[in-house]
């Protein structure tokens, strides 16, 4: 464990130097404990793969005391303290090349049929390590080793929201139109970010995500329901 100063308003608590479920679980457990205990002077927290950025108010608490208070919680930061995770089911249309525009190329690169690639991707359960980059964008792992693929050589400048992409061991879903280097296999019609909703982001750190294969007709139908605000994603 290391405490790294991030200016005068934040400290980065590094719990490991690897991307693993084990380290990330401890990060999220530490965040949960800090929130629960209401540590003096802590303003907000941002979990990432293996570290937690803790924003504090130096008018209320100094650097050494806030680090000491966090350090005291670290030994208790294990899976046991976390509430049971939510599982969010996201419909995903893989079959239309207008939506999953890299599916055929990714399958070729991986020497798989497109159907096998979709089966492997949709069959897995993903863990949301954290949310970042753009509002509501989940950084997830859980992909079968067989579909581990290097990121695109040349990132594209625009990726439509809802695009489901893979790169390395990661799977991500673009929440707003943004540049990106992932191979896009399909698209979900569900909005991960809706600025006019009372809770604008759908996913939270620690969520489990499952994809459900849908055809283009269902994609369009759900899209209509999402626009009309009548669609409720399946969360258990």
């Amino acid at each position: 464990m290391r405490f790294l100063p991030a200016g005068d308003l934040a400290v980065c608590v590094e719990l490991g130097e690897e991307i693993s479920v084990e380290v990330n679980t401890r990060v999220r457990a530490l965040e949960f404990l800090i929130q629960q205990k209401g540590l003096t002077g802590v303003v907000e927290t941002v979990p990432a793969y293996s570290s937690l950025l803790v924003y504090y108010d130096p008018r209320v608490v100094g650097y050494d005391p806030v680090c000491a208070a966090i350090a005291e919680l670290v030994p208790q930061a294990t899976t046991a303290v976390l509430p049971p995770p939510r599982t969010v089911e996201l419909p995903c249309c893989y079959e239309d090349p207008d939506l999953g525009f890299d599916l055929a190329a990714a399958a070729k690169r991986l020497e798989l049929s497109t159907d096998d690639l979709v089966r492997l991707h949709a069959g897995a359960e993903y863990l949301v390590y954290f949310i970042g980059f753009t509002p509501g964008l989940p950084y997830m792992t859980g992909m079968p080793e067989r579909i581990n693929i290097p990121r695109l050589d040349t990132p594209r400048t625009k990726t439509p929201p809802g695009s489901v992409g893979i790169g390395g061991i990661q799977c991500c879903i673009y929440s707003v139109e943004s540049p990106g280097g992932f191979w896009i296999l399909g698209r979900t019609p569900v909005a991960l970010y809706d600025p006019s909703a009372s809770e604008p982001t759908l996913l939270r750190p620690g969520d489990r995500v499952r994809f459900r294969r849908i055809d283009r007709a269902e994609f369009d139908a759900i899209g209509v329901a999402v626009a009309a605000r009548t669609y409720q994603p399946v969360i258990s």
């Binding site: 200016g7 308003l9 934040a10 690897e18 991307i19 941002v46 990432a48 950025l53 980059f133």
Partner: peptide, 26 residues
């Protein structure tokens, strides 16, 4: 390995040129 970005962080990509992150940062 991606981590949180504080206000005023001086990020340095491969070209060695700094980017100071402000209030609308990622």
């Amino acid at each position: 390995i991606s981590d949180g970005i504080a206000l005023g962080a001086i990020q340095v990509p491969g070209d060695g040129q700094p980017i100071v992150l402000l209030v609308d940062r990622q």
